[in-house]
């Protein structure tokens, strides 16, 4: 297996006010692989991945130390445009959050804000993205209905389609199935496995089975520290650290 580094976190510390929530994290994520971040809730998983598209910039009174590289470029560097970073690093949120617009507009929004004006190419891209997100068949007759009328699982796939349309290189999933039923969860998981052909995927989950089912690599975070990182199979079968083993066997969490 040839693993090419796509994202690299180096000595990352993160603070909310005076409270440190991430401690000295070093981690690499590889191209065309699914990497999962697991750990009990409140361990800083979501905070950590929100650093990769600089979403934490929006929260006041926070501070980051260390470096994050995307294709070996420091994304917090002086001449880096945060908007461009976010175009390359897409994100799917915990709770499906489609815009209060039509299904079509939800997907075309990202294209329009990225300066694409040609109606024809927008339409092609919308169809392609919906198709890739395995939603096209279900919505093709109601593209101009409100997205809020879709089911939870459909809404989440729409959010994925919306994200795909801007052609990111990395997609961050922040507990994408946390508010979905098992059937919808399954379809999202299948989708993620399909998407890794084209993208680098990082997924936060508190569901260990989910990590085991879909990821190639797994990182275990506990109380803001990276306890262990490695190929998923190894981490789940022969964990190196005692804490990892205890977590996996349900001693806490």
């Amino acid at each position: 297996m040839n693993n090419e580094v796509k994202i690299k976190a180096k000595n990352v510390n993160f603070y909310y006010g005076n409270k440190q929530v991430l401690e000295n994290i070093d981690l690499e994520f590889y191209q065309n692989r699914v990497s999962a971040l697991i750990g009990p809730s409140g361990c800083g998983k979501s905070t950590f991945i929100r650093l990769f598209n600089r979403m934490n910039d929006l929260i006041s009174n926070t501070r980051m130390e260390g470096k994050i590289y995307l294709d070996n470029i420091d994304i917090n560097g002086k001449n880096v445009d945060v908007v461009k970073i976010r175009r390359l690093v897409g994100m799917v949120f915990q709770k499906p959050n489609p815009f209060p617009k039509t299904i079509y507009e939800n997907v075309s929004y990202g294209l329009e804000v990225n300066g694409i004006k040609d109606k024809k190419s927008i339409e092609e891209k919308v169809i392609e993205s919906l198709d890739r997100a395995a939603l096209w068949r279900e919505v093709k007759d109601r593209l101009h209905d409100s997205a809020l009328g879709l089911s939870g699982g459909q809404q989440q796939r729409l959010c994925i389609a919306r994200c795909l349309a801007v052609e990111p290189e990395v997609i961050l999933f922040d507990e994408p199935c946390a508010s979905l039923d098992p059937i919808s969860t399954r379809s999202i998981e299948e989708l993620i496995l399909e998407l890794k052909k084209y993208y680098t995927i990082v997924i936060v989950t508190h569901n260990m089975q989910q990590a085991a089912r879909i990821s190639d690599f797994t990182a275990f975070l506990y109380l803001g520290e990276l306890i262990e990182f490695g190929p998923t199979e190894k981490l789940f079968t022969v964990p190196k650290e005692k804490t990892t083993e205890e977590y996996l066997t349900g001693k806490f969490g």
């Binding site: 461009k84 976010r86 897409g90 994100m91 709770k95 815009f99």
Partner: peptide, 19 residues
């Protein structure tokens, strides 16, 4: 969440506000 979703798609602050 609307603001976050829009920004995460690479919309600028102004685009998010306006659109």
């Amino acid at each position: 969440s609307y603001r976050e979703a829009s920004l995460a798609l690479g919309a600028t602050h102004w685009q998010t506000t306006k659109k």
